[in-house]
Design a protein around this nucleic acid. Structure first.
Lengths: 338, 338
DNA sequence: TTGTAAGCGTTATCAG
DNA sequence: CTGATAACGCTTACAA
């Protein structure tokens, strides 16, 4: 019962027509009689014929495939966005090649070459490390960036969350719950997203006339083999041991926030009674930690939708009024930690 | 500076040789003079030529692409395994098409058709729902299953964790910490992995001469729009309200375990002092919840390695002594919850 | 309405 | 050592 792979040519022979006609029927393209249509379709059914997309791609110079570059698929934010993108594109008839770059520039470069060889119709780069000026795919391949823009700052479209708003909302939440002395925990301060979040924090303070103090900014560096959570915990404990006092924490992501909570609990204080905590990302762990973590939710779904929509428009050439920088609103998810 | 895509033919012309020779040089295949080699390579470099893998695949009937079917990429176990597989295969020169099936049989079927059209060289199915007997890819496409075997039970290779051992270790841990009355929380009891874990639980009890009681088995059903965690918490609270007593919990996955912990804490009891808890999977949340969760770690890395190794052997035809059922050991990760 | 044939970019066979 | 050329499976003018 092991049917060999059957080609359009054999369908033609079995149906008593030419390959051209079969092709027309398959693609519902051009004219043919109802009779031949029926016959061809029947033969296709019988033989379990499936179009060879490789050949089709070669001929059409279109692969119906798009590439996604992602730094780390096991990060929940990335995983979610990718999953959503994949799902949307699938419905549109595109398949997706997901490339996990490990934030490694060489790997990224290698993937780009591979993708080019596969004649991808478009590319989505999430938080990419590489500047795309010199790369293999600098041609006309439609490109959308999410979360971070490559240095080659020309005309590529960037889609990202409203990090400023996120910082503002998080801080406002703490203030509204009575905090006056709010620590902010930052990991990668060079990221534009981090800077925006910090700015939101500062402006929220200003709005409520709370002075911004430099000593409230806690920078954590994550050593090799150490998680962000551990690093944040250690940094906070260190600072406290030096006499630092505070009544609220805004951590720039949920992993850091959990670290802060652990530190606080270890000292015998209570969250949220003694100190309140807000994170960022709405990582699943924020729902499962104890106490549950108030956090800022990025709209992964909308980011994905917008990325796909723009990319497809770019591919189809129906590029109307696409903004170069698209900012997606975030929302506060209020939980037990505040 | 926008170079059009350049083909082997143009390389030939620019180098003053034939396409055949260029092909030979590129693939280091056949004989050619050092001189021509140098010239051709130089032209390739100058023009930024990149092989068109679509054309190559068509000709070679080999795409150097493998497909992965995965139920849910945002599940940490799956995400990890997929990530690892992708990384290994990439090093071997294969690219990977990751297909997220959402446990949806139609989507799975559609993906299989798509993958066939892409002439994939091999397929890895993680916890698949479909029986592959009738499907598009029943040909000779090499196939490896992870975690669950499709019904069509013929000769496909299955790689999975030692679920029995996991159940045993988890239960033994609880017993060794003084538990005598251990609840077991089960979600999908029809899965063979669940059955094995239960069996391990029972045999561990037997080893320590603790009688197995049916009332200790808590089945949770997860309603639409409810997380496993919430469902487990609700189920446990319900049971307790009926007067049920216990001093330890073995939950068949970490999400369920977290639910149990939340239930226990809500009742004013302490973990691990009053009740101890063990989960399964070593989900990242197990490290970040409070208290941190003792759990069973599946060896994702080894599973991935073994899957790739077997698949590549199948593809190359160097299929020596491959066992049809390969069982990967698991380990206990002891944390605060016990 | 249908068939013929060219061509997409490669590799492999067969002569030279 | 190198060059023509067929073939991979498909789409699409152009003819009929």
């Amino acid at each position: 019962m092991n049917q060999r792979k059957v080609s359009i040519k054999e369908i033609a022979e079995l149906s008593g027509v030419s390959v051209a006609t079969v092709s027309r029927v398959i693609n519902n393209n051009g004219r043919f009689s109802e009779e031949t249509r029926k016959k061809v379709l029947q033969v296709i059914k019988d033989t379990h014929y499936e179009t060879n997309n490789i050949a089709k791609s070669l001929r059409m110079k279109k692969s119906n495939t798009i590439g996604i570059l992602v730094p780390d698929i096991s990060n929940s934010f990335f995983a979610n966005v990718v999953q959503e993108i994949e799902s949307i594109l699938f419905k549109k008839g595109y398949s997706t090649i997901i490339c996990n770059t490990d934030r490694n520039e060489e790997k990224e470069e290698a993937y780009l070459r591979m993708l080019e060889g596969k004649m991808i119709d478009g590319l989505i780069v999430i938080s990419g490390v590489k500047e795309f000026g010199s790369t293999a795919i600098n041609k006309k391949t439609p490109l959308i960036c999410i979360d971070r823009k490559p240095k080659d700052t020309k005309s590529t479209i960037l889609i990202e969350s409203d990090h400023y708003q996120g910082g503002f909302l998080a801080t406002e939440e703490l203030i509204s719950k009575g905090c006056h002395n709010i620590a902010i925990i930052i990991h990668r301060d060079f990221l534009s997203s981090s800077k925006e979040r910090l700015l939101g924090y500062q402006n929220a303070l200003k709005k409520y006339q709370i002075p911004f103090k430099e000593e409230n900014v806690i920078h954590v560096t994550v050593e090799e083999k150490m998680s962000r959570t551990e690093a944040a915990k250690a940094a906070l404990l260190q600072k406290i041991s030096e006499g630092y006092q505070f009544d609220g924490v805004f951590a720039l992501n949920d992993r850091l926030a959990i670290g802060a909570i652990h530190a606080i609990l270890d000292l015998g204080k209570k969250v949220p009674e003694d100190i309140k905590v807000v994170g960022f990302d709405n990582d699943p762990i924020s729902k499962y930690c104890y106490p549950c973590l108030t956090t800022i939710r990025q709209d992964n779904m909308l980011i994905a939708e917008q990325a796909c929509e723009n990319l497809l428009a770019l591919i189809d050439g129906t590029r109307k009024d696409m903004k170069k920088h698209q900012v997606i609103p975030v929302t506060l998810v209020s939980r037990a930690s505040t």
